[in-house]
Design a protein around this nucleic acid. Structure first.
Lengths: 156, 156
DNA sequence: ACAAGAGTGAGAACGATTATCGGTACTAAA
DNA sequence: TTTAGTACCGATAATCGTTCTCACTCTTGT
């Protein structure tokens, strides 16, 4: 079901798979997978890192700002795109974890760029255990965790 | 130097210590520790969780909104207060880690509230190692990490 | 073909935060 | 203790990312 469990795919196959899964999910929620939404997904799927709205519109100038915002919201609500609030001026968007796999971020506090990183499964396991233990003590219902490293990127 | 390394203090002593350290730090940077800033710090020091600006002003109505925002900014820049961007409408503020100790957050995605949590040192160690390893491979200069658990709080 | 309703995009509106600005209050030197 | 220099204050205006409005268009089902 997730991208991770699929056999290795080249870029074109991956994109097709992404569209397939997202289309199915939207249909299930009585939403349409229109060309505007498809373009949005395409931009994000081809990016190697989370993008802001200006990034997205710059990458595909056919996208209208208001529609992009609205569709991003629809896709976030549908669970296929994730919105990141890293503290900069703009929110960042990336494909949701079912499509991209579980990962974390390097956040540059100077230029605001965000890069994906993957941690070893031993770390993930320990973190998960530790967090869910605390959550259960507090009556908190965990949904997901985020682990970000803040600092200066190589370019800054 | 940090609050953690101090002997156990009651609330009044802790507050005095906080004021002392912050005052010293501001003076060093040619800023004044005025009563408005002191009130701001007092509100945050007495809170058990990160607060938004409306929270802060509600807790001490003498604080003017514009001054509170300006002073919060001064204090953040001076490194004595930390600004959290959790995705809700408002940013949250709390005393910086030298004063509060290293910790993480439970973030309620329904009501936006944030609560502090502390993880075991074994987890912290492993996370730190793992992150700095990745950082060094990427040319990223780490400053600090954040590890948040998102979900629904007990009240929601 | 038609009706119902989802989607679109330009522009208006919103709201958290930041900047402005005339006036206040420390601070240090004479 | 004056006086100058400057940090600070708070009401208000301005900024700007994001959301809303609305007239219009496109799909889908009958």
């Amino acid at each position: 079901m997730t991208a991770e469990s699929l056999p290795v795919l080249d870029d074109k196959e991956y994109l097709a798979e992404v569209h397939l899964q997202i289309g199915a999910r939207l249909t299930r929620q009585e939403h349409r997978y229109t060309s505007g939404r498809r373009q949005l997904v395409e931009v994000l799927a081809q990016a190697k890192q989370p993008m802001t709205l200006p990034d997205i519109v710059a990458a595909d100038p056919d996208l209208a700002q208001s529609s992009a915002y609205r569709n991003l919201d629809v896709l976030v609500r549908s669970g296929v795109i994730r919105r990141l609030s890293a503290g900069g001026d703009h929110a960042h968007f990336e494909l949701a974890e079912p499509l991209l796999g579980h990962h974390h971020h390097l956040i540059c506090i100077r230029c605001g760029s965000i890069e994906d990183i993957h941690l070893g499964s031993d770390v993930e396991l320990l973190v998960d255990q530790s967090l869910s233990e605390i959550a259960s003590q507090t009556g908190f219902t965990p949904i997901h965790h985020s682990l970000d490293l803040h600092g200066h990127c190589a370019d800054c």
